[in-house]
Design a protein around this nucleic acid. Structure first.
Lengths: 192, 192
DNA sequence: GTCTATATGATGATAGAC
DNA sequence: GTCTATCATCATATAGAC
C-alpha cells in the first residue's frame, strides 16, 4: 500500500472511531506511519483528506448494500437480509456518525457524499418495496418511500441505542420490531 | 441566573451543537460570560461540568416524553403524538448525539445518564404499547418491547437522515413510515 | 516524495492575587 | 467567588533542505 493509500485508510479508521472534530492530522500521520511532509504533499489539508476518505467509505457502503438488495428472493426477504446482515453494531455506522459532526454538516463538500449515500439507500429500498408490492407480495396500501425511510432510520437509530447501552441488544430489538411490523403487511401465499 | 447555572446552560448548548470532543472549556466560559477561575471553582473540570449538563438535559427529555405518553387517548394516539411532536429536527437529539462521542461512550460516568434515558424511554413506550394490546386496541400478536425499540430508533435515525439531507423531510417520512406500519396493527373498532 | 524545523493559536488546567 | 497570569501540550499548518 502506498503512503497516500495508508493515509486514506488511517483517516477512514479515525473518522469512524473519533469523527472529524476528534481526528487530528497528527493522529492520522502516526497511524499511517507517515510524516507531516508526506500528508501535506498528497493532500491540501485535513478537509481534503477527509473528503477522499469519506468518498471511499460511502462507495463501500453502497456496494455492500447493493449485494443484499439485488439478491434473489422476495422483497421482505431482501430487506430482512439487509437488516440482519452481520454488523459490528457497537462501532456504529461510519457514514451515519458523520452527521453528528458539526464541521462535516457545515461544509457542503463534506456533507454531500453523506447525503448522497442515504438518498441512494432510501431510494433503493423504496424500489425493492415497491417491486414487492407490485408483485403482490406486500399489501397494496404500503407506502414504499415512507417505509424505506423508516427502515434506514431504524438501522441508524439502532446504532445510537446500542452505543448508549453498550450492547447490541437494543439494535437487534429495533430490527426485530420493524421487521415484525413489516411482516404483518406480507400478503399470505395461497397454499398449492 | 447564577454563574454556575450559566456555565451549565452554556455547556448544555455546546454539547448539543458540537458534542463533547468539540466543546472546549474556553468556549463554555465565553458563552457563559465567566472566567477560567469561575469554572474551575464550581466544577473540577470539563468532565464534571459535562456530567452535570448531561443530567439536566436527560431529565428534561424524560419529563417532556412523559407528558405525551401519559396523556389521555389510545396507545396509537399517544405514540403518534410523541413522534409527531414539534421538534427542531436539524439540531438533532441532545442526548442521542452524545453516543457518537468517543470520550462519552468510553467514560462510564458520562455514558450512564445517556443509557438510562434511552432505557427508560423504551420501557415507557413498551408499557404504552402493551397496555394498548391488553385493552384490545392493538393486535394481540404485537411485540411491545421490539416495537418500542423500533419507534425510538426511528426517531434517532430520523435525526441522522435529516442532518445528512440538510432537511427535515426524511425524518418526517421515517415517522410516517413507522406509524403507517403500526396503524395496520390497530384493531378496528366495531361501529356502534 | 519525504523529512525536519518553525509558527500561531487553541486546549485543559494550575497558582495565586483580589 | 472571581480574576489574571502562567504552563505544557496539541492542532494545523508553512518553509525549505534532502
Amino acid at each position: 500500500m502506498s503512503t497516500s493509500e495508508r493515509l486514506i485508510e488511517s483517516t477512514r479508521e479515525l473518522l469512524w472511531e473519533r469523527g472529524y472534530v476528534g481526528t487530528s492530522p497528527k493522529a492520522i500521520q502516526q497511524r499511517a506511519g507517515a510524516g507531516q511532509g508526506s500528508m501535506y504533499h498528497h493532500f491540501t489539508g485535513k478537509p481534503d483528506l477527509a473528503l477522499t476518505a469519506i468518498r471511499v467509505t460511502a462507495q463501500e457502503m453502497r456496494d455492500r448494500a447493493e449485494e443484499e438488495l439485488s439478491a434473489p428472493g422476495t422483497a421482505f426477504e431482501r430487506v430482512s437480509a439487509y437488516l440482519r446482515r452481520g454488523r459490528d453494531v457497537l462501532r456504529g455506522c461510519p457514514i451515519g456518525r458523520l452527521t453528528q459532526d458539526p464541521d462535516v454538516v457545515a461544509d457542503p463538500a463534506l456533507r454531500r457524499p453523506v447525503d448522497e449515500t442515504f438518498a441512494w439507500l432510501r431510494d433503493r429500498l423504496a424500489d425493492v418495496l415497491a417491486e414487492g408490492r407490485d408483485r403482490g407480495e406486500l399489501d397494496a396500501a404500503l407506502d414504499p418511500v415512507a417505509t424505506a425511510s423508516a427502515v434506514v432510520a431504524v438501522l441508524q437509530g439502532g446504532y445510537v441505542l446500542a452505543r448508549a447501552a453498550g450492547s447490541a441488544e437494543p439494535f437487534e430489538q429495533a430490527v426485530d420490531g420493524v421487521l415484525g411490523l413489516l411482516a404483518a403487511r406480507v400478503v399470505p401465499t395461497p397454499s398449492p
